[in-house]
């Protein structure tokens, strides 16, 4: 902490913890006052030294004379000055004790009035944040605090987690966050590796009901009929084309035997119905 006596500029690295105030005395008064104080110190120092030497040398004699004066010989005790002084001391002690209790009570009241006022004024003159940052090991305090605190319990008891989560979800596009930040492929793969899908399906899926539903919706006999029809169609088409090839072979041989040079005229009048219509003739 710095003070107002001008030492702050000598610590450029220090934070401006204490606010600066103007000097209490004007410069015209301060200079003569400093000179007077200096002269007093120069004069007073030898006087004080001499006095101290005299007192030290005369102190034992003075103590003996003072004790003799307080309790002179052959004088009754009740008439001595020492006795009177003791009586006075006792009375004074009683008064002091009583007054001390009053002073304590008065002091408490006074402090109750003064401390807040003083503290406010002190705090007004101090940048407490900078002071803490400069002087306090916050990291250590935080570490110690965290060690002593059960943060989970504190959060569960003091924080409205539902409101926070609701607010966060409302403001976040969770789908986008997950798509950008989560390796979904790895997640799914890990999940599948850790799961027994067969067991999951057996325990959670009504396989029999599902199969029954599929069978109900699929006209299985019709599908089998169509498949069979398709196979038969392929066989019949193949037989027809093979027969046509055999026709050409027979025709070629017969034409060769009959020494024909021109091709046969097989074009028939009209148009085949198979090339005119898209449907069966029944």
């Amino acid at each position: 902490m710095t003070s107002t006596d001008g030492t702050a500029p000598q610590q450029p690295a220090a934070l401006p913890v204490v606010r600066r105030r103007q000097p209490a005395l004007p410069a015209a008064v301060e200079a003569p006052l400093d000179v007077a104080l200096g002269a007093a110190v120069v004069v007073a120092r030898p006087v004080v030294g001499a006095a101290d030497s005299v007192v030290r040398s005369l102190a034992p004699v003075a103590q003996s004379l003072w004790a003799l004066a307080l309790r002179p010989p052959l004088v009754p005790e009740q008439l001595t000055a020492g006795h009177a002084l003791d009586r006075l001391g006792e009375r004074g002690r009683a008064v002091r004790t009583a007054a001390g209790q009053d002073v304590v009570a008065i002091s408490d009241d006074t402090l109750d009035l003064l401390v807040p006022e003083i503290l406010v004024r002190v705090l007004d003159r101090i940048d407490l944040t900078s002071l803490v940052l400069q002087r306090v090991d916050l990291e250590r305090i935080a570490s110690e605090l965290l060690d002593q605190l059960d943060l989970t319990t504190v959060v569960l008891e003091k924080v409205d987690l539902h409101a926070i989560v609701t607010k966060a979800i409302d403001e976040l596009d969770l789908t986008e966050v997950v798509l950008q930040n989560v390796d979904l492929g790895s997640v799914v793969e890990a999940a599948l590796d850790s799961m027994d899908l067969n067991e999951v399906v057996r325990t959670r899926v009504d396989v029999a009901g599902l199969a029954e539903e599929v069978i109900d919706e699929v006209d299985l006999p019709d599908i089998i009929r169509d498949s069979t029809s398709g196979v038969a169609t392929v066989v019949v088409d193949g037989a027809r084309i093979s027969a046509v090839s055999a026709d050409e072979l027979v025709n070629r041989w017969i034409d060769r035997i009959m020494l024909r040079r021109k091709a046969r005229r097989t074009d028939a009048p009209g148009e085949p119905e198979s090339m005119l219509r898209g449907g069966d003739d029944g």
């Binding site: 088409d237 027809r240 084309i241 027969a243 046509v244 055999a246 026709d247 050409e248 027979v250 025709n251 097989t266 074009d267 028939a268 009209g270 148009e271 085949p272 198979s274 090339m275």
Partner: peptide
């Protein structure tokens, strides 16, 4: 079938 389109409408041979 594509292979059969060419002879549709032609007179059939003896084998067929």
């Amino acid at each position: 079938p594509t292979a059969a389109r060419g002879f549709q409408g032609l007179r059939a041979g003896v084998v067929t």
